[in-house]
Design a protein around this nucleic acid. Sequence first.
RNA 1: CUGCCCGUAGCUCAACUGGAUAGAGCACCAGUUUUCUAAACUGGGGGUUACAGGUUCGAUUCCUGUCGGGCAGGCCA
Length: 552
Amino acid sequence: MKAHLTELLFSVVKQITDYTDSSIIVIDRPKIISHGDFSTNLCLILSKKLKKPPREVAAIILKQIPPSELISKIEIAGAGFLNFFLSSKANNEIINNVLSLKESYGKNKTGNNQKIQIEFVSANPTGPLHVGHGRGAAIGDCLARLFEASGWIVTREFYYNDAGEQINNLTQSVKASCQNISTDDPRFPSDGYHGDYIHDIAKAYLSKKKIECQGQIIKATGEIKDTESIQEFSIAYLRNEQDQDLIAFRTKFDVYTLESSFYKNGKVDSVVNKLIEEGHTYEKDGALWLKTTNFGDDKDRVMKKTDGSYTYFIPDVTYHLDKWERGFKKVINEQGADHHSTISRVQAGLQGLNKNIPENWPEYVLHQMITVTKAKKEIKISKRAGSYLTLRELIDEVGCDATRYFLAARRPDSQLIFDIDLARSQSNDNPVFYIQYAHARISKVIEQWGGDVSKLKLDESFTFENSAELKLIKSISIYPEIVLQATNELAPHQIANFLKDCAAELHSYYNDSKFLVADKNIKLARLSLINSARYVLKNGLQLLGIEAPQQM
RNA sequence: CUGCCCGUAGCUCAACUGGAUAGAGCACCAGUUUUCUAAACUGGGGGUUACAGGUUCGAUUCCUGUCGGGCAGGCCA
């Protein structure tokens, strides 16, 4: 439809100006219903060039624009906007289009079957997943669904930092716990983890439990001195917990990559050698430094410590080189904003490899930290201190749907405040139920009607006139644009907000009109309309990974 | 001190990347059920978009500065 309007407008623009490119024409969807279905600011832009007031330009265009059976009315409004109103024929086509596309309505093929890799959550196996990880999971998974809906072939990936200092801390903490050393004992590792789960792991380890993790069985030896076994078991234990939490959160990954694998297969060493070879390194104070300042960082970074081990970002660079070599031209990393300083280092490292990797590759979506409050007081989310709200607790208490909605419904860069008491007491206020209720209501009406839904089709000659109906049609027609926009802007929250609006239109309509009326034409038309709305709600909820119930 | 993100109704958040009268939910006030689910709907009050300048037909959005909050600035990850 936008293309159609652009074509109509451009045919006039060609006559009255010397523009040869239709890109100056931008078609918008006005917020206010009285401003029509589409609008353009074209006249405001042409005004300067033609040296005429915008409204005068509008009058000229209006006079010359060719007629279209899809448009019932064009108005000049405000400072010089042109507002377009769709004809009933155009409205009917929208609805019949939804009814024939069904679950495919809203999808597009702009991805053109290209490969995209989305990395998200990537929590260290040093503790259970908390709300912050939940936010990453909700956003990352919705992004993946959005790209799938836009015709991309998506690989979801989880990266485990299972090597390095933090794992040592974990191992030492569990070991201390095995020896009954309490966290306030001076012998407890000073950088150790204090959470209760450390005791759980220790207990399981001492009783020689078996843990299944990613298809492998890990068995604890139960020996306190067997540090290797403690480490292996602790990681397996926590990975297993995280996996189960993610399954409960309906988040699946296609690929799990272990940091340790890049040490084992020698890729870390080859990256380091390549960086040395390319002349981006130097030795100082007994350590090896990477000249990240060559690539825009504000100071150089140590890559090889004096003890011979590498700093964390070297395996990170290796991992990203691996992504590149696997053929992903588009990669998105969804992570917490506390990791933002790694971006410049990873990108610097990749540039230093001289492999023609684009400067702004990979792309990042950073979500801001969540502030958790309880009884109006802030709770610090800290693995070390062991005080945090786990994702599992959240799912158990408020449900997967409500949690997913809540965490995906806000802009990633908003610092959202999560009130535990509110979530517990008022989970019914979560807008997700409002949306699901709209879906359930439609389902019930159609069930009571009892006819063959697959044969529902709107009669060409039917005209919707009721304003509740027109608003709902507009909402339905916008949906594919929202999907595309949310994908391009990496903004899943737009889907959530749209669905809330769409559900509101449906509820208004529901209260305004009765659907199962005696007049057969009106009945079938209304059923066609609400059934197409049902597809929009269902498809939109699917993008958020939320169920669309038949009844509530 | 330096870099990144943010500041919108009493509270939690939107605003289609520069558009028209800044919108929802919660909370508050007043209404709606012999009818397909009232987990709903209708109406009302509530705003100097932190503050001060600038850019232009037009700014919550872009630029500069100030104030306030968060996160980073480890040979931790």
